[in-house]
Design a binder for these strands. Structure first.
Lengths: 174, 174
DNA sequence: CCGAACTTTCAATAATAATTGAAAGTTTAT
DNA sequence: ATAAACTTTCAATTATTATTGAAAGTTCGG
């Protein structure tokens, strides 16, 4: 497709592998992370076919994971004039990428946890297990408070401008 | 073992399931997360046998995962006088738990990523692909800067007192 | 409306990750 | 030094998760 020095292709490949590995350690489908990595380091539009070829994966796999990346807001669908098939472009801004990943995972994982913790806060007690129920309730309360703190901060982060964040953050770090 | 209202046992069970599910979505072995949850909501010391019985898992599984929890600093080994076997106690402080998880995952996942990003920063260029190499290098640089920012903040967080963190954090949130 | 060009779905299959349990290893009391 | 009590290991098995690819679905130009 392109004539590049081996070094650039090697580097791309290495980045894709590493991003895939990181993703899979964090519960994200390795292939989806690899496709994401490919989009992160590719300036041009890519078709599903390009992705299939470059990562040596099947049509179904490519389609499904590109779809999820679009849902997450990490990849955009674009049309090429004169072409019938779909093309895609990756979100390049790593700050936006982070915000979008935070939003999805907050919704998919933190919210259900908060919901369950709220439920667990009010449990029956009787004379036989008063102490135990108290200890349990206290512990759940602590975990819930912490989770709410995390939830609030993630919400703030995922709605803020990078510059605002960096400024406040620098104060926090010094 | 204890006489409790169904509600307490149900609640414990539900918490264990939820914590296990959260863990597995974040790339932590579901059983390890469940054992951790059990320790979080259990005041008493537990033996490996207790854990096996309560979670209905094998000896090998219990042993391996308790070992990892100890490595992570989330469970402590303790001896009961007059007993030969080992007993364990969970770290209850959710702030400490967070700090220890951050440390482990930073070391296991963020550090290797930073290492690779550093490698990828210097790649060969020639007249045919100057533009592409520049774009790639710029993108890797951005990702690396961001990862370093994250790394620094996580280091700070995992070394700080909860009170310090809360205070600074409250300012950050307002 | 037709058929070519493309996308989506999903049951079957493959790859990966977790679990078991019995054997080997270790520790301790006597 | 021995045996009982306990812990660890790891090859075989099971469970979970991801991938394939062909068939079904969709869209579009003429």
């Amino acid at each position: 497709m392109y004539v590049c020095s081996m070094k650039l292709n090697e580097a791309r490949e290495k980045f894709i592998q590493q991003w895939g590995s990181l993703g899979s350690k964090w519960g994200i489908n390795r292939t989806m992370a690899q496709i994401h990595a490919l989009f992160l380091v590719t300036e041009d539009l890519l078709s599903a076919e390009d992705v299939m070829e470059m990562l040596k994966i099947s049509r179904g796999n490519a389609n499904m994971n590109i779809r999820t990346l679009i849902d997450w807001g990490l990849v955009y669908k674009e049309y090429q004039s004169g072409e019938r098939k779909e093309f895609f472009r990756g979100e390049k801004d790593i700050w936006k990428v982070t915000q979008r990943v935070i939003r999805v995972r907050q919704r998919q994982e933190l919210d259900p946890m908060l919901h369950v913790l709220a439920e667990l806060q009010t449990i029956e007690s009787d004379k036989n297990n008063k102490k135990e129920v108290e200890a349990f309730t206290k512990q759940i309360k602590d975990i819930k408070s912490f989770a709410e703190l995390a939830d609030g901060s993630l919400t703030k982060i995922s709605a803020s401008e990078e510059n605002w964040f960096l400024k406040v953050f620098m104060k926090f770090m010094k």
